[in-house]
């Protein structure tokens, strides 16, 4: 039972839906500095899509799609990128936003005061930190779910 996942209904609905969930998660991460949400929320949404795949297809449908070593590596890269971005403004203070309002190419634009639609190329280190934390959360939680599924299966067979 555990190797083949759930019923046909669950698997069919999952095939239709999981791409949309991943797309919405990346949208939440990418527009984290404009709309509600951010790195943590978007990463949780993408990780919930991975968890849906795991529950629906079981560990048999997982072979060759998600590699645990890759997930761990991406998580550590996200954590280190977050720390490096925090150290970027160490000349003034820890977590000083060096790139905001600098006018540079990388998220350096300014936003007008008051209610507006938002500028995507603004915010300095905030969007970069959104991506770092988003990658970290999605791969971390996916690694936890995969490890729980595979690790508990090993003990069953022994």
């Amino acid at each position: 039972m555990s190797n083949h996942g759930m019923s046909v209904i669950v698997r069919t609905v999952t095939r239709f839906v999981y791409g949309l969930i991943i797309l919405f998660g990346f949208y939440v991460i990418m527009h984290g500095h404009l709309t509600p949400g951010g790195g943590f929320q978007g990463g949780a949404v993408v990780a919930s899509a991975f968890a849906l795949l795991l529950v629906a297809f079981g560990s048999a449908g997982l072979k060759g799609r998600l590699n645990l070593h890759w997930l761990q590596s991406i998580e550590e890269v996200g954590a280190l990128a977050f720390l490096a971005l925090a150290f970027l403004g160490i000349g003034t203070a820890f977590f000083y936003n060096l790139l905001a309002n600098s006018g540079g190419f990388l998220f350096g634009a300014s936003v007008p005061a008051g209610a507006n639609a938002g500028v995507l190329n603004a915010g300095g280190t905030v969007p970069l930190m959104n991506w770092a934390v988003g990658l970290k959360v999605m791969t971390g939680i996916a690694a936890v779910a995969i490890t729980m599924l595979i690790g508990s299966k090993k003990e069953e067979t022994e």
Binding site: G32, G39, N97, N101, V111, A113, V119, A122, V126
Partner: peptide, 17 residues
């Protein structure tokens, strides 16, 4: 928040800056 961090979402400005 909009002037200093150049971010419309004030919650993200507080959380990340």
């Amino acid at each position: 928040a909009q002037g200093e961090v150049a971010v419309n979402n004030v919650v993200t400005a507080v959380v990340f800056d």
